[in-house]
Structure formats: structure tokens, C-alpha cells
């Protein structure tokens, strides 16, 4: 009995180790390749670890290829989207949970319905509307458009977090004479702060990673976001994989690092939303 069990355990661990290698390998490969020089990266057979670690790829990508600028573009857009979307969504999620509890189920349906709108469908009116507003090639245009997917998702997640706040605490504050907004800011927000941080980070990652709208609404090289800049780099005639990998590291690392911190909260939020 004991022996049989341990063979089983070994198989389990081997499967998990293999799956983990498959999951993590591309990330490792990006980072390791980014440090390889031009001679080494196309060598056959390839070394896994760089023989000579070099920062040249990063230096070139950041200064010559202007990725410093693209990082700033993406950072500004993603941070502004996050701030606006989380503010709007926190108010809405709290409003629904506290004042319109019966809307709850209908809201889930509404959010799923909006989720059904294909981005490629929305891209057409967005390009027309943003064009008419004169906001093509502007950060503000992209920030507005990003609210379309970040607000529904953030509301979805935040409703789950606000539902955990006990009503009693709020009533005590109301008796003390605080108005609704004061209760919200002074009493409720501190309680759900961890949930809001997780939602904000998730919103940030999604805005940082976004590709299609940025492809369609930005056509000046100066204003490109980092995702589109990476794609543009890939389409260049002479493709330098070392530079590509350095640029890829700059795009992927912020997402992965932030994500590892919040993954627990995001997944339980979705699961809780589903069981209602």
C-alpha cells in the first residue's frame, strides 16, 4: 500500500515538473537570449546559458530603437486607464452591492453580454469616433477606448470584494452622521483595499498588454505603445533576435511580476462570482 502510493506521488510530481518546465521555459528563453551577443544567439546547436553575458541588446533597444519612449507611452496609458477605470468601477460595484442589490444578477448578465462584443467589432466604430474627435494618435484616445474592456472587468471583480464588507460597520458610521460618499471613502475603501489593489494591477496588466486598439488607433512611430512597437520591430527587414528578446523582456517582465503577486485574489474573485 505504502509503496504503491509513493509511485503515484512520484508520477504526480514528474508530471507537474514537466508541465512547469513547459510553462516557464519561454520566459527563461526570452531572458537568457536577451543577454546573448549576436554571434551566440544564432549558433547551432544553441547554448542554453549565454557564454558571455552582454547588456548590448538592452542598451540598443532602449536608446537606438526608442523603446524607452514606448515604455513611457504604455506606462502613462496603462496607469491612467487603471486610475480612471478603478475609480469608476469601485463606485459602481459598491453602488450595486449596497443600493441596487437586486440588480446583481442582471448585472452579471449585462457584463457577460458586453464581453461578447468582439474587439474587432468595436474597433471599427472606435476608429470612426476617435477619428471624428480628433484623438487618433493620442494617449487620451487610447485611454478612453481601454475603459471599454477595463471597466466591465473591474466591476465584475470588485462586486465580489465589496460583498464581503459587513453592513453593520457602515450603519455605525451612518449613525455618526457620515454621508454615503464619506462612508464609502472612509469606511468601506480601507476594508476592500487589498481587492482594489489586485483589481488595479489586473487592469494595469491588461492595458499594458493590449494590442488591437493600439494597432488601429496609433499610426505615428512616436506614439506607439510597447506592444505595437515590438510587433513593428518584428516586421523589420533585418531581424535581430537578441534585440527582439531584449524588447520582449521589457514587455513581459512587468506583467509577469505583478501578476504573480495578485493571482490568488483574481482567481478566487472569478470563482466566487461564478457561484452566485
Amino acid at each position: 500500500m505504502r509503496k504503491k502510493l509513493s509511485v503515484r506521488t512520484i508520477i504526480k510530481y514528474l508530471t507537474l515538473i514537466l508541465a512547469s518546465i513547459v510553462a516557464v521555459f519561454p520566459l527563461l528563453w526570452i531572458i537568457l537570449s536577451a543577454f546573448k551577443g549576436p554571434g551566440e544567439i544564432n549558433q547551432y546547436p544553441t547554448n542554453i546559458l549565454p557564454k558571455q553575458w552582454t547588456f548590448d541588446n538592452f542598451r540598443y533597444v532602449l536608446s537606438e530603437l526608442n523603446f524607452g519612449n514606448y515604455i513611457v507611452n504604455s506606462l502613462v496609458i496603462a496607469l491612467a486607464t487603471t486610475f480612471v477605470a478603478v475609480t469608476i468601477s469601485a463606485l459602481a460595484a459598491y453602488g450595486v452591492v449596497r443600493f441596487f442589490p437586486r440588480v446583481g444578477k442582471a448585472l452579471t448578465r449585462l457584463l457577460i453580454t458586453t464581453y461578447m462584443f468582439p474587439p474587432i467589432l468595436l474597433a471599427i466604430p472606435y476608429s470612426v469616433i476617435i477619428g471624428a474627435l480628433g484623438l487618433v494618435n493620442t494617449r487620451i484616445g487610447l485611454i478612453i477606448v481601454y475603459l471599454s474592456f477595463s471597466v466591465p472587468y473591474a466591476v465584475w471583480l470588485l462586486v465580489g470584494f465589496f460583498e464581503t464588507v459587513p453592513l453593520g460597520i457602515e450603519e455605525a458610521a451612518r449613525i455618526d452622521g457620515a454621508n454615503k460618499l464619506q462612508v464609502f471613502i472612509q469606511v468601506v475603501l480601507p476594508i476592500v483595499a487589498p481587492g482594489i489593489v489586485a483589481t488595479a494591477i489586473y487592469t494595469f496588466i491588461n492595458a499594458w498588454n493590449e494590442f488591437l486598439y493600439s494597432l488601429i488607433l496609433i499610426n505615428s512611430t512616436e506614439k506607439m505603445t510597447i506592444a505595437v512597437a515590438l510587433r513593428a520591430l518584428e516586421n523589420q527587414e533585418i531581424l535581430d533576435w537578441g534585440q527582439m528578446m531584449a524588447a520582449s523582456s521589457l514587455v513581459v517582465l512587468p506583467s509577469v511580476i505583478f501578476f504573480v503577486f495578485i493571482q490568488n485574489k483574481i482567481s478566487s474573485g472569478l470563482a466566487e462570482g461564478a457561484t452566485k
Binding site: N209, F259, Q263
Partner: peptide, 10 residues
Amino acid sequence: IVPWAFPVVV
């Protein structure tokens, strides 16, 4: 979960 955080471009 690492792949989940990957931008599609990357």
C-alpha cells in the same frame, strides 16, 4: 500560471 500573464505580442 506564468503563461497567463504573457502579452499576446510576446
